[in-house]
């Protein structure tokens, strides 16, 4: 933007997991790459043309030979980015186009200026387009659930846009394979007493992302997984 885009965020890696997002992923990645030179897209065993679209967008492609779930894909992207010794800031970003690059830029700038280790995007501090009332109520319930299980009080618990430092990326170690990664992220934060802030973001609920997004009933699966993991923390 202001200065040359390539130099500007040279220590930032944007991690984009991708499962059958062929129709949109190229556009999403190209928009990210206008401002962030380092983007890794993890193709999580897609059956469509996601992989070639990722390559066409100029992002780094890491391919899971089988589908392993969003959490596993994020972890792969993080471990790939950690192999870059100059990577300092990590961003988790959705491939379906619901997140805005402007928000990432603002969050990265904010993280540089502040001394917290994690910034979590919040839809409720910001604005939401086209979210249904029931969805809103469900997400409110999720917030209460997270508060009880992790002790971390957020306004928006299942928001995937998160920006964090290398120190946290190293300890994150997501084991959850599916969507419960967002909860595991918070669990790890509470285990390591990580400092964090919330940051208002604007989320675009397009017809595409709504069709691709999680069904609300899946929150039951997430809740049960979180409780089981909690119960078995001693392994």
């Amino acid at each position: 933007m202001e200065s040359g885009p390539t130099r500007r965020n040279d220590d930032v890696w944007v991690i984009v997991p991708c499962y059958n997002e062929g129709p949109v992923v190229r556009g999403v990645l190209e928009r990210v790459r206008e401002h962030f030179p380092h983007v890794v897209a993890v193709d999580d065993g897609s059956r469509d043309n996601s992989a070639s679209e990722i390559a066409a967008a100029g992002a780094r492609l890491v391919q899971h030979p089988v589908n392993m779930g969003a959490g596993a894909a994020y972890q792969t992207g993080i471990e790939f980015a950690l192999r870059d010794p100059e990577a300092q800031i990590f961003v988790t970003f959705d491939a379906d186009g619901q997140h805005r690059v402007e928000d990432v830029m603002a969050m990265v700038d904010h993280l540089r200026k502040s001394d917290v280790d994690v910034l979590i995007g919040s839809r409720f501090l910001g604005t939401v387009d086209g979210m249904s009332m029931s969805r809103r109520a469900l997400l409110r319930a999720a917030v209460v659930f997270e508060r009880m299980t992790t002790g971390i009080a957020l306004t928006d618990a299942h928001q995937g846009l998160r920006v964090f430092r290398r120190s946290f990326a190293r300890v994150l170690d997501l084991k959850a394979h599916d969507m419960s990664w967002a909860s595991e992220f918070l669990t790890r934060m509470s285990e390591h007493q990580t400092s964090y802030e919330e940051y208002p973001v604007h989320v675009l609920y397009t017809d595409y992302s709504r069709a691709k997004g999680q069904r609300s009933i899946n929150s039951v699966n997430i809740g049960v997984d979180v409780l089981i993991n909690k119960l078995l923390r001693g392994r």
Binding site: V62, H64, P65, M68, E79, A81
Partner: peptide, 18 residues
């Protein structure tokens, strides 16, 4: 296992992350 294979594969094909 899959993760480490996938990362090694990507690096072998397109070089290290940086």
């Amino acid at each position: 296992l899959v993760r480490s294979l996938a990362i090694d594969d990507a690096i072998r094909k397109d070089g290290p992350p940086r």
